[in-house]
């Protein structure tokens, strides 16, 4: 089971409305390589992993990703919270506003809703861990793209933190692959 802790893993304090970045951040909230996809992917793959170390890694990284999903949701919320409707429209969010208001909905920046087809669980541990390693690299690349889109420190600091976590996760999954290859 999971216990909620009423704090973010890394603080998010965005005071300046930024609908353009809210839209871009949706890549990591509801896109194919999003934190939501990461959490669901690892937490569902863990059941059939044949080694306790790999089960633990999928379980614990999956859990950390839920905390990252919460951080991205907080960032989108704070970017939209005080944004005037005109600015949301100018950022291309008229369609989003129509359907979701200022709520935080798991879709990508182009409005495509999150779907389980973004993740796989083949039940083959080597195939699954290799997917996880690729997922971490894709998330890292997405964070780098997001960081080139803004010079606001209140966005850059959490993005930098999240990017570094992807690198650590990639390292741990790489060790899992080695463990599986030596079973």
């Amino acid at each position: 089971m999971w216990i909620y802790q009423k704090k973010l893993q890394y603080p998010v304090n965005i005071t300046c409305p930024n609908p353009r970045m809210a839209k871009a951040l949706m890549a990591q909230y509801g896109g194919p390589d999003s934190e939501l996809g990461a959490a669901m992917r690892y937490l569902t793959q863990r059941f059939s992993m044949p080694d306790n170390r790999v089960k633990a890694t999928c379980n614990d990284i999956g859990t950390e990703e839920l905390g990252h999903w919460e951080m991205i949701g907080a960032m989108i919320y704070q970017c939209l919270r005080d944004a005037p409707l005109k600015e949301m429209e100018a950022a291309g969010l008229a369609g989003y506003y129509t359907m979701h208001g200022k709520g935080v909905y798991p879709a990508d920046p182009n409005g495509v809703p999150f779907t389980a087809s973004y993740i796989q669980c083949t039940g083959d541990p080597i195939a699954d861990i290799t997917e996880d390693m690729a997922a971490e690299q894709k998330a890292r690349a997405t964070y780098e793209h997001l960081m080139t889109l803004t010079d606001d420190a209140s966005l850059l600091n959490p993005l930098r933190f999240l990017r570094e976590r992807e690198i650590v996760h990639f390292q741990r999954f790489g060790e899992c692959l080695e463990i599986l290859q030596n079973l």
Binding site: K7, Q9, Y10, P11, R53, A56, T57, D60, I61, E64, V168, H169, R172, E175, C176, I179
Partner: peptide, 21 residues
Amino acid sequence: LRKISEYQFVTVELNLYLDTH
């Protein structure tokens, strides 16, 4: 909260490392 986050950062890092070691 900052202190908590600092210690949590260390313990999450060590936890993930200990999962494979």
